[in-house]
C-alpha cells in the first residue's frame, strides 16, 4: 500500500493520539490539528492526501468548513468525516459537498483502513494516468512540430510545382524563357 499524508483534525486529544499511533503504524505520515483554525494553517502550507476530521468542533470552523477549505485549496484532497451517530444527516450533507466518506463513532479501524486503501489505490491510478498523459503530451507535441514543418514544406513545394506547371504550359511565352523562369522558381 502506498503511504498517504493524513491530517487528523479533532479536539479530543485521546482520539488524536490514537489515530496518530494507528496510522503511523500503517506507514502513513500523520499531521495533527486540535481545531479548525490549526487545520486551515496546515492545509494552506502542506501538501495533504487525506483529511480525517471530526464533524463537530468548538469554534467557527467545524468539519464542514474544514472540508470546504480543503476542497477550495485542492479538489484532490479526500476528506473523511468522523461523526457521532446523531449527526449522520449532516454527514450526508457533507458528502454532497464533496466529502469522500464518513465514519461513525466509535471508530472502527478496519473500516477506516479499508477506506484509506481505496483512496490510496485511486491516487496511484490517478498518478499513473497523469504520467501517461504527460508522456502523451510530450510525444504529441514533438510529433506535432515535425509534422507541421513537413506540412509547411510540402505546401511550399506544391506551390512551386503549381507555378512551374503554369509557366511551362504558357504557350504565349517563348520555350527557352519558359524553362529559364521555371528553373528560377525551382532554385529560388
Amino acid at each position: 500500500m502506498n503511504t498517504l499524508t493524513i491530517l487528523v483534525v479533532d479536539d479530543d486529544p485521546v482520539i488524536r493520539r490514537l489515530l496518530e499511533q494507528r496510522l503511523t503504524k500503517e506507514n502513513h505520515t500523520v499531521l495533527l490539528a486540535e481545531d479548525g483554525y490549526k487545520a486551515e494553517k496546515i492545509i494552506e502550507t502542506t501538501p495533504i492526501d487525506v483529511i480525517l476530521t471530526d464533524l463537530m468542533m468548538p469554534g467557527e470552523i467545524g468539519g464542514i468548513e474544514v472540508l470546504e477549505i480543503a476542497k477550495n485549496k485542492n479538489q484532490q484532497i479526500e476528506v473523511i468525516l468522523i461523526t457521532a451517530h446523531s449527526s449522520v444527516d449532516t454527514a450526508v450533507e457533507a458528502m454532497k459537498k464533496g466529502a469522500a466518506d464518513y465514519l461513525e463513532k466509535p471508530l472502527n479501524f478496519t473500516e477506516l483502513f479499508l477506506r484509506l486503501q481505496k483512496i490510496s489505490n485511486m491516487l496511484s491510478l490517478l498518478r499513473s494516468a497523469e504520467d501517461l498523459r504527460q508522456a502523451m503530451d510530450v510525444t504529441e507535441s514533438t510529433a506535432g512540430e515535425t509534422i507541421q514543418n513537413l506540412e509547411i514544406t510540402a505546401g511550399e513545394l506544391q506551390e512551386k510545382l503549381d507555378a512551374v506547371e503554369a509557366i511551362l504550359s504558357n504557350d504565349t511565352i517563348e520555350a527557352y524563357s519558359r524553362i529559364t523562369s521555371a528553373l528560377n522558381i525551382i532554385y529560388k
Binding site: E140, S141, A143, G144, I147, Q148, L150, E151, A154, Q158
Partner: peptide
C-alpha cells in the same frame, strides 16, 4: 489535430 496532416489527403 497537431499530429495530423492534409498532405496527400486534400489538395
Amino acid at each position: 489535430g497537431s499530429t495530423e496532416s492534409l498532405t496527400g489527403i486534400c489538395p
